[in-house]
Design a protein around this nucleic acid. Structure first.
Length: 579
RNA sequence: GCGCCGUUGGUCCAGUGGUAGGACAUUGGCUUCCCAAGCCAAUAGCCCGGGUUCGAUUCCCGGACGGCGCACCA
């Protein structure tokens, strides 16, 4: 059985994840995390939060999943997530109509912007045929397919809304308030863990491509001219880089390991900020249990990156022979905030003070409206505006006795003394800038899946095959299982007492007294429980128990009183053999 | 979305035009002083709809779901 098939079987049987709504035939693209999976996912999210929110000093928010249409008009999703689909009546294949037109007509590069009707006309005019079977497509309608789930906000159909296709917009749209919260000072980072929705044409491969998924995103707002990441914190971190040139065959074609510092100096890393987060993320992947030998950072190819992304890398994990994207690291520049600023009319900017206030000379006017009014009638206001504009661009026009402005092809002469023209010195403390954004965007479901695939293994213990999940102790759904050797002579009562105490001390504890002891160990191995505590006859004599380690199957006897402290040490990384 | 293949207890599979069988798992009992052991018993299934047929889990059509390929993946 392939590793993906083996994991799918395990995931279903042991409650990690499974297709949703199976009682009703199932719904493609939706998965339910079972008890083990929900716990693992939560632990991974907490690890992410611990690093990207707490340790890096960022803030976290929680925004709605439904947003009004205007947000996606601004973000570009309404247009950009909309595909033009054209179906061939002959063979039934569907094609991107805009791509067909772009391929067939040399001077058209963005057919999508032309609209469906025009694209349909172009298909007919150029006699474009079906790439699959060659049949003429002239009679086929070009249809829109939007990857966003639409809904209505409020009764009726008055206010269209969409389920967000990425969590990021929930942060961007709140920027004006968030910058207030951040006391108008850059840089600051805002994180969010939440659901996003895409009505994928073809959901595939378990948790890899689904229609509802969890993202953990950080939007780090910076002043592109002044802010630098604390790169020294990560410059010695080694990162496996799969550069664009390696992918296109210019390089040696493989993954190269560099330190962040070296890769910034000599390439292929370009942006310090992206490099910083690549370096930071290594620790995260290691902590959650990604096998770093099956992991790489892949640089986007030139044609692959979004038009606003200056430097873009994906973190990819190898699963069943395929590389899947688990994180996108993008330098989004000021694209998102600028768009929301333009569309909303609100200031998506931060005031940046100059080091020293600057004194600038500025030509101003203060027209005497009691003259302009009677003289120019209803055009007076426009004349005044024209004077102000003229003062800004050509103060020499005000040197004579009269100044001439042109309005709708008509020239108007205005006596200079009525314009209130003056050159003033003004002090400017700073300017409004639109912050740039660095966005590490993690797909939580894909991380859960990668961690499970990488952790899943089999070995042989006492001639029996064993299936186990080598999860980091801190990620495991259950930290410790308490098992009595026998369910008699009071061993089980004693074990229940120990389990209760461990629970009171804050551990995720399982208690199991069914079947023989080996079976119970294997059960815990299979869901990744790192430690089993066994209560045996010696426990009754001297109050000691054994701790069994999942990975080595080795055991060590410790005092029941020390149990919580010992397990705490083990979870934080101490080895059982060194206790 | 298209094409090919598939869908049988919880899981993995066998099988059949006369409504099914195994393995593992699960539960209970016995046994057992540390790694899925053994014995006994129990629970539990033919994806959905329509058609053909005396009778369909089996054949045909459609749908849902899954795997792979193509397309798609701002």
């Amino acid at each position: 059985m392939s590793e993906t098939a083996a994991l799918a079987e395990l995931a279903k049987r042991r409650g990690f994840f499974f297709a949703s709504n199976e009682a009703y035939g199932g719904t493609a693209g939706f998965y339910t995390y079972g008890p083990e999976g929900a716990a693992l996912k939560r632990n991974i999210e907490d690890a992410w939060r611990d690093l990207f929110v707490r340790e890096l000093g960022n803030m976290e928010l929680e925004a709605p999943t439904v947003m009004p249409e205007a947000v996606f008009e601004a973000s570009g999703h309404l247009e950009g997530f909309d595909d033009m689909i054209l179906e061939c009546a002959e063979c039934g294949a569907t094609h991107r109509a805009d791509h067909l037109v772009e391929d067939a007509v040399p001077d058209i590069e963005d057919a999508e912007a032309l609209g469906t009707e025009r694209v349909a006309e172009l298909v007919a005019e150029h006699g474009i045929g079906c790439p699959s079977c060659g049949a003429a497509l002239a009679e086929e309608p070009v249809e829109e397919f939007n990857l966003m789930f639409g809904t209505n906000i409020g009764p009726g159909s008055g206010a269209p809304g969409y389920l967000r296709p990425e969590t990021a917009q929930g942060i961007f749209v709140e920027f004006p308030r968030l910058k207030e919260y951040a006391r108008n000072t850059l840089p600051f980072g805002v994180a969010q863990i939440g659901r996003a929705y895409r009505n994928e044409i073809s959901p595939r491969r378990a948790l890899v491509r689904v229609r509802e998924f969890t993202q953990a995103e950080l939007e780090h707002f910076i002043d592109p001219e002044r802010d630098r990441p604390p790169i020294e914190a990560v410059e010695d971190v080694e990162v496996p880089l799969y550069s664009a040139s390696a992918q296109t065959g210019d390089g040696d074609g493989g993954v190269e390991r560099h330190t962040v510092g070296a890769a910034l100096e000599a390439g292929p890393l370009e942006s310090e900020w992206v490099a910083y987060y690549l370096g930071r993320s290594v620790e995260f992947y290691e902590r959650i249990g990604i096998d770093m030998d099956r992991f790489r950072y892949r640089q986007h190819l030139a044609g692959e990156r979004a038009h606003y992304a200056a430097d873009c890398w994906d973190a990819e994990a190898e699963i069943g022979g395929n590389w899947i994207e688990v994180t996108g690291f993008a330098y989004r520049s000021d694209y998102d905030l600028s768009k929301h600023g333009e569309h909303s009319g609100e200031p998506f900017t931060v005031f940046r003070q100059y080091d020293e206030p600057r004194t600038v000379e500025r030509a101003v006017v203060d027209p005497d409206m009691s003259y302009l009014g009677p003289e120019f009638g209803e055009a007076a206001g426009e004349v005044a505006d024209a004077l102000e504009a003229l003062a800004g661009r050509d103060r020499s026009a005000f040197e004579g006795d009269s100044v001439t402005v042109e309005l709708d092809g008509e020239t108007h002469a205005v006596p200079v003394e009525t314009t209130g023209f003056a050159v003033e010195e003004q002090t400017e403390a700073g300017e409004h800038i639109t912050p740039h954004v660095i966005e590490p965007s993690f797909g939580v479901g894909r991380l859960v899946y990668s961690v499970l695939i990488h952790a899943h293994g089999t070995d042989t213990v006492d001639d029996e095959e064993r299936s186990f999940l080598e999860l980091p102790a801190a990620m495991a759904p259950t930290t410790v299982a308490v098992v009595p050797l026998m369910t008699k002579d009071g061993l089980d009562e004693r074990a229940e007492g120990i389990a209760a105490r461990l629970r009171a001390d804050g551990f995720e504890v399982a208690y199991d007294d069914t079947g023989n002891i080996g079976r119970r160990y294997r059960r815990q191995d299979e869901v990744g429980t790192p430690y089993c505590v066994t209560v045996d006859y010696e426990t009754l004599e001297d109050d000691t128990v054994t701790i069994r380690e999942r990975d080595s199957t080795e055991q060590k006897r410790v005092s029941a009183d020390d149990l919580s402290a010992v397990i705490r040490r083990l979870v934080s990384g101490d080895a059982l053999s060194e206790l």
